[in-house]
Design a protein around this nucleic acid. Structure first.
Length: 391
DNA sequence: TCTGGGGTCCTAGGACCC
DNA sequence: TCTGGGGTCCTAGGACCC
């Protein structure tokens, strides 16, 4: 006889248009207007002698930045996260453009999470602007509890959030998106057919553009259609693991626990150049950039107390083709010079043999197979000899 | 006028060992 | 000489998420 799992009560809390909302706290005069946050290298608004600010407009932007977040007013004009800023200017040329200020977002993030933890301490961090909360052990009824959480978040940050509550993370996440902004959605198992099945399969966390397109080709658009599809059929197209998962997810089944802490697996730094750099003609600049990335990565490792055995490089070429190379050493590294030495080791000439691999738009360095720094006796740079390197 | 930066997890093949 | 499985580690790429 199967043992009945005790029913859980999981919340997903998602801050509303987070980065843009934090910015509006600093610039309340932009409230109600289309505002876009993005662009790594743009200057913050200039303060005029009379105390007002001079803001940049989207149409005046030139560069390779993308939209990090936009206000709901900007979204109404067709400007969404991930869109190139130059392209989004076609939809909303007069929208205001602010540079991302990550220190401020991290600080606000800490405050909203601390406020939630005062009420419900079992929290899974899902990035800067969202968390899962396990409410199972709390005595309070759901709606009053969620109202308290939202009030605490607002008191700590001045910002609103949207919350979904359900028996598992999968449904809670879908729920928090159903009424945005400043919404609350409670889903019960018996709501799956009426409220989840009509939604598009992309609403399931883990089904992205590729899987959705594949499902579309099979004539599967809504989650309900996915739920009606046999596991055999899904396994044929997506493999046994993903096939089984798709079927369970479409039926609202998810046993994954709320994980309160995870050790980091890797740290990385990368940069997209303002113009594509040529392997030979811009050799000196590429070399400087690689050294700078290694220095920043070493700082990160130092701050967090890690060293790593695996060092990798990432290159995106002008045609957007992506290549990664990595190498694992017996000794863990953390010093900038060691990272640089290992990163150079990954860069071999054959990476640049074809003509469409001559110009590089992005360079990255990654450190994986992390260990605690205390257990790393000495960071000795790998002693292997290096032949001629591209940069 | 395309397409940031920081992550996680999965797959698949080859090396190597028992 | 030919022929096994099973297991782990490493590497490259890809899908996905915030």
């Amino acid at each position: 006889m199967p043992v009945a799992r005790p029913s859980r009560r999981i919340a997903h809390l998602d801050m509303d248009a987070f980065f843009a909302s934090v910015e509006l706290l600093s610039y309340p005069e932009l409230r109600g207007l289309p505002v876009v946050v993005g662009g790594a290298r743009i200057a913050p608004p200039k303060k005029l002698p009379d105390g007002r600010h001079e803001f940049a407009r989207l149409k005046s932007y030139s560069g390779r930045g993308v939209v990090t977040t936009s206000t709901y007013e900007a979204r109404a004009l067709g400007v969404f996260s991930g869109m190139g800023l130059m392209r989004s200017a076609q939809f909303a040329p007069e929208a205001f453009l602010l540079p991302a200020c990550f220190d401020a977002y991290r600080d606000t993030s800490r405050r909203f999470k601390a406020a939630v933890a005062q009420i419900a301490p079992t929290i899974e961090d899902r990035g800067i602007d969202e968390i899962y909360i396990d409410l199972t052990e709390l005595a309070d009824a759901t709606l009053p509890l969620v109202r308290r959480l939202k009030a605490a978040v607002f008191a700590a940050t001045g910002l609103t959030c949207s919350v979904g509550v359900a028996p598992n993370k999968l449904l809670a996440k879908i729920g928090s998106d159903l009424q945005k902004p400043d919404g609350v959605t409670v889903l019960l198992p018996e709501d799956v057919a009426s409220r989840i099945w009509p939604l598009h399969v992309k609403k399931i966390n883990g089904i992205g553009a590729k899987t959705a397109a594949h499902l579309e080709k099979l004539g599967i658009h809504a989650i309900g259609e996915l739920a009606q599809t046999s596991v055999d059929m899904l396994t044929q197209h997506f493999g046994p693991r993903i096939g089984a998962w798709l079927s369970r997810a479409a039926n609202g089944v998810d046993d994954s626990p709320v994980v309160t802490w995870r050790a980091p697996k890797s740290l990385s730094r990368e940069t997209t150049f303002e113009r594509d750099l040529h392997v030979r003609h811009d050799r000196a600049e590429l070399s400087r950039q690689l050294a700078a990335l290694c220095a920043r990565l070493a700082e990160d490792l130092n701050k967090k107390g890690y060293a790593g055995h695996t060092i990798g490089v990432k290159l995106r070429f002008a045609d957007f083709h992506l290549v990664t190379r990595e190498i694992t050493w017996p000794q863990a590294m953390f010093a900038a010079e060691s990272l640089l030495h290992a990163a150079r080791h990954c860069l071999k000439r054959d990476l640049f043999s074809t003509t469409n691999r001559q110009r590089i738009r992005l360079l990255g360095v990654r450190c994986g197979a992390l260990t605690d720094r205390e257990q790393t006796a000495v960071d000795s740079a790998p002693k292997s000899r290096q032949g001629e390197l591209p940069f």
